[in-house]
Design a protein around this nucleic acid. Structure first.
Lengths: 179, 179
DNA sequence: GAGTTAACGTAGCGATCGGTACACATACTC
DNA sequence: GAGTATGTGTACCGATCGCTACGTTAACTC
């Protein structure tokens, strides 16, 4: 009995919070500015999420879930590693993905310092990809290459040079597929 | 006239501050805990460095200077790219370098969000390496590969897998040296 | 209607933040 | 010694932090 819970409200707030941290970052996140951007109050954020710590945890989880969806689309093509790599590269190097990867690398840096706070980030961040590509040395190198190129891309914006580097490395690595 | 300045005191504090952020991170840096770890007061940090913003700026500059020293040792070998790469990899993948790279990737993430605050970090972080290796697509790919592997190493600690990935990628890329 | 629970606003708590005012000690020149 | 500039300790400022106490309204069951 009593008024029924409205989980949709919390989901709306979480979605909006994710968009907010994409734009403003996570390192200096403060409840009051976030709340006013979401047209609510810090009081309500604490009410719905329990506290700042739990809010951040749920934000990171939500982002990981969004990204996991993209990963899952790649999984069926498991047979052809280079096809998976090309598709992944096309999706991730797209300009629309840049805000996501700025956030991704920001969380990466924070998680290296406080692993428990950003629950499971470090374990998933490599393992999820190796599960798609296979866990051997070649898969490790391919993930590292793509990640390094994305880091270059979001920091320099020099798309032509990074694209050329991907094409060269891809053709170079394609010629030697077995470790 | 008057008491002469003592620049050595500031240099000591800066060095100790660098060691502190290596251990405690930069994202949540606070003057008072830093000061008490350095056996001084926040009052003195502000006096010597002008403020938190300037202190952070000088810390980042100091770390970059330390690292630049290592880069310069590699420069003379410019003729042989793979020799440079191997030397760089051996130095950077060493366990003693891990604290530095945790800090490096933390600053990287923060700099992506606030480029002006971490002055020049993003410009130097790629350009300095391309100046050593050459600015073409191959150099970009090599830097990306190493950086991605280091990111993997500091986050998973799985040295065997990462080492194997380096060896495989190195031999694979060595066979195709011209883009 | 009464009872109950969810959702929300207002106002404030104690703690900590970066930075400063002010006094005093130190080390130099003259 | 007087004069001067640096280095340092104490104590505090206003602002902001995460969080909570308290009251009110909304939506449901009976």
């Amino acid at each position: 009995m009593g008024r029924p819970p409205d989980p949709a409200r919390k989901a709306e707030l979480l979605d909006a919070a994710v968009d907010y941290v994409f734009r403003h970052g996570l390192a200096g996140l403060s409840l009051r500015p976030l709340a006013s951007a979401l047209e609510t109050s810090s009081r309500m954020l604490v009410y719905h999420f329990g506290g700042k710590e739990e809010l951040i945890s749920q934000i990171v989880q939500a982002v990981r879930a969004r990204f996991q969806g993209m990963l899952d689309e790649l999984a069926p093509r498991r047979g052809d590693r280079l096809a998976v790599l090309d598709t992944a590269w096309r999706l991730m190097s797209a300009p629309e993905a840049a805000p996501f990867f700025r956030f991704f690398f920001e969380v990466y840096g924070l998680a290296l310092r406080e692993p428990v706070r950003y629950q499971g980030f470090l374990e998933h961040v490599v393992a999820d990809w190796l599960r798609v590509l296979g866990g051997d040395a070649q898969a490790t190198a391919l993930v590292a290459l793509v990640r390094g190129l994305l880091l270059d891309l979001v920091s320099t914006g020099d798309r032509a040079r990074v694209e050329a580097a991907y094409r060269w490395a891809r053709s170079s690595l394609a010629a030697n597929r077995e470790p």
